[in-house]
C-alpha cells in the first residue's frame, strides 16, 4: 500500500492505515502502536524536511515469520551526516531530535539511504513475535 504524504493530515491517515494493517497481520495491540508511532515519525519527517514523499506499507515474510515493512521515501534535501542524525539529541530543525534513533528503537530492522541532494529513504521492519 502506497500513501502519498504532503501534509499533516496524511501523517494521521498513514499511521491509521499502518495500525489497521498491523492488526490484520496479527500483531499485538502493543506492537501495532509501535508501528503506528514509527509511521507517524517517518511521515512527519517527510512533511517537515522534504515537503512531500511516499510511504509504503508492506507485509513481508522472513525466517522468523511475518513482518510489516515501512518504507518512507522523499526527494528532499537529504541528510549529509547520517551517523549524526542517528544519534540521540540531534535534529537539523532544532526540535527534540529524537526522530530517527527513536524509530530505530521502535522497530526491529532499520535501514537508511540518504545524501545531500539525493533525497532520503528509510526502510524499517517489525517482525511478528
Amino acid at each position: 500500500m502506497d500513501i502519498r504524504v504532503t501534509s499533516d493530515k496524511d501523517v494521521v491517515h498513514a499511521r491509521q492505515q499502518g495500525r489497521a494493517l498491523a492488526i490484520e497481520l496479527g500483531f499485538s495491540a502493543s506492537d501495532a502502536t509501535l508501528i503506528a508511532t514509527a509511521i507517524s515519525e517517518l511521515t512527519r519527517n517527510i512533511v517537515t524536511y522534504a515537503g512531500s514523499g511516499v510511504v509504503s506499507l508492506r507485509r513481508v515474510t522472513g525466517p522468523t515469520g511475518l513482518g510489516l515493512t515501512i518504507e518512507a521515501v522523499d526527494q528532499g534535501p537529504g541528510i549529509a551526516d547520517i551517523d549524526r542524525a542517528l544519534r540521540d539529541g540531534y535534529s537539523s530543525s532544532g526540535g527534540l531530535g529524537l526522530g530517527l534513533p527513536g524509530v530505530r528503537r521502535l522497530m526491529d530492522d532499520f535501514r537508511i539511504e540518504s545524501g545531500p541532494g539525493r533525497g532520503t529513504s528509510v526502510t524499517v521492519t517489525k517482525w511478528h513475535r
Binding site: 502493543s30 501495532a32 502502536t33 509501535l34 508511532t37 540521540d88 529524537l98 527513536g102 521502535l106
Partner: peptide
C-alpha cells in the same frame, strides 16, 4: 495515556 502508548513513548525517549 494508554499503556501501549506509554510503552511506545518511552521507546521514543518521550
Amino acid at each position: 495515556i494508554q499503556p501501549e502508548v506509554a510503552f511506545a513513548m518511552v521507546q521514543l525517549g518521550l
